[in-house]
Amino acid sequence: MAEATGFAEFATSRHGALFRYAYLLTSDRGLAEDLVQEALVKTYVGWHRLRDPNNAEAYTRRAITTTAIGWWRRKSWRAERPYDDVPDQPVGADDATARVWLWRELQKLPPRQRAALVLRYYEDLTEPQTAEILGCSVGTVKSQVSDALKKLRARLGSDVVLKAGITE
């Protein structure tokens, strides 16, 4: 009973942040909802081993990431991708075009690279923290981020990139 209460507190307080993380990985609300639900089920099952909410959050993020990568490999989310890459709120005016383009290009990145960017540039995690969630070495995180940024620069063009300030 105490376990369920602790888990409920964790899930209720962190659900929004986890959902947003999943949404950035998938750019699809339905998939993000499924990812978070599945990851929270895994966290609940393993709750007695986690206890510390900090561990639980890292565990859940890792579950979201690995599940997303697994789905991508099985092509299930590309094959059944339904709708919804439009945010609920309108895009702001400043640098709007560049952000729309960048968002679209982010969706074309392999999930592991995309996850690395989200963890580093949205969650502001360090390279070792990112490596822990991705289940890889720090060197791999570096190369994933580097490769992803190279691709974005190549696709967006030098004007946009320089103006926008995407540099390594």
Partner: peptide
């Protein structure tokens, strides 16, 4: 540094409202 990337991710994250949490279903 990488402001555009940070801004884009933050904007998209802020622009999507999380759905209700189905806690009973998860448990």
């Amino acid at each position: 540094m990488n402001d555009l990337l940070r801004d884009t991710l933050a904007e998209r994250a802020a622009g999507t409202e999380p759905p209700p949490l189905d806690l009973d279903g998860i448990i």
